[in-house]
Design a binder for these strands. Structure first.
Lengths: 187, 187
DNA sequence: GTCTATATGACGATAGAC
DNA sequence: GTCTATCGTCATATAGAC
């Protein structure tokens, strides 16, 4: 892996672990095994490198989600598969956690990939719910966008509960709770 | 308000806006209109002041939630009131946001009030769900703890969606989505 | 391209005057 | 109790050698 790529990967890891405000160029360089000069040769500065890293992470998360949501099964099963997919729960969501970062929220450019990713996810799930309504799997009075927002929020909030308690149990409980409500609205 | 109290209030505001890592003693002092000496006279340092501030915020959040959850109405109505209660959605949750702060998670002492508050909230709501099951308002196959986790997660995750998009709409959609699922399980 | 050296200011804390 | 002065370190970036 070349230096530029190592810088991006190190930044992705640190943004996930410590957020934007908590990540210093120095820490990135140490992890990447590079000197100051390399970073400022390949990138304009910390925001530029972070933007590249965030875009990469966002792309990857989208691909992972699509792998489950676009898989086989009924609409309910695909949403269940998304909710139950294996996660490193205590690490939190590498995209969602950035919404708690003041510098990310203050910058339209840094916030954009976060917004686009979560928006895409909600739309994707909303479409699946609508599909389920047509097929008769989901109750026709459900609103796809609303249920999708609840699904994504349960995941994002599940990370919060898990990290607060230091255990993935609360995440899993929330998922089971939502599925128990959703499952009863299926045929 | 005395200096000690001003320091606590300023810290509470900054922790909400910028988190622990993003809040410097200097910023606290400027907002409180105090000098360095005052802070180190009243508190041992940044972690000590932050702990005091977090405990205060946690207490207040608990009281606010109890005001709604302990109010009148059926179990469903009280949970609905909690979910729909007025919030400054784009500011996020002053307690939940701390779970994304690496230094808070790394310190058992700083994490404790966060954990206790969210845990209390889940237990409180779980009890209301169980109450609803006994009264026949909620379907008997529901698990109180699981539904409670889904309720709290929807709120915490709703903040994430709202902040990502820069609009409270996604929070409201998630709440409506969850209520539409929960409402159909009531008598 | 990558490195080290350097600059400027911020971070978190201490010392000691008043 | 509150203030200013000072400290050693880190954050972010630039300069310029190799």
């Amino acid at each position: 892996m070349n230096t530029s790529e190592r810088l991006i990967q190190s930044t992705r890891e640190l943004l996930w672990e410590r957020g934007y405000v908590g990540t210093s160029p120095k820490a990135i360089l140490e992890r990447a095994g590079a000197g100051q000069g390399s970073m400022y040769h390949h990138f304009k500065g910390k925001p530029d490198l972070a933007l590249t890293a965030i875009r990469r992470t966002a792309e990857e998360m989208r691909a992972t989600a699509e792998g489950v949501l676009g898989g086989p099964g009924t609409p309910y099963e695909r949403i269940e598969a998304y909710l139950r997919r294996e996660r490193d729960v205590l690490r939190g969501c590498p995209v969602g956690r950035l919404t708690m970062d003041p510098d990310v929220i203050a910058s339209d450019e840094l916030r954009a990939p976060v917004d686009e990713t979560l928006d895409w996810l909600r739309e994707r799930i909303a479409g699946i719910v609508e599909e389920g309504k047509e097929q008769g799997g989901f109750a026709p009075d459900l609103d796809g966008e609303e249920v999708a927002a609840a699904v994504v929020a349960t995941v994002q909030g599940g990370y919060v509960l898990a990290r607060a308690s230091g255990s993935p149990a609360a995440f899993d409980a929330g998922v089971r709770g939502l599925l128990s409500l959703l499952g009863s609205r299926t045929a």
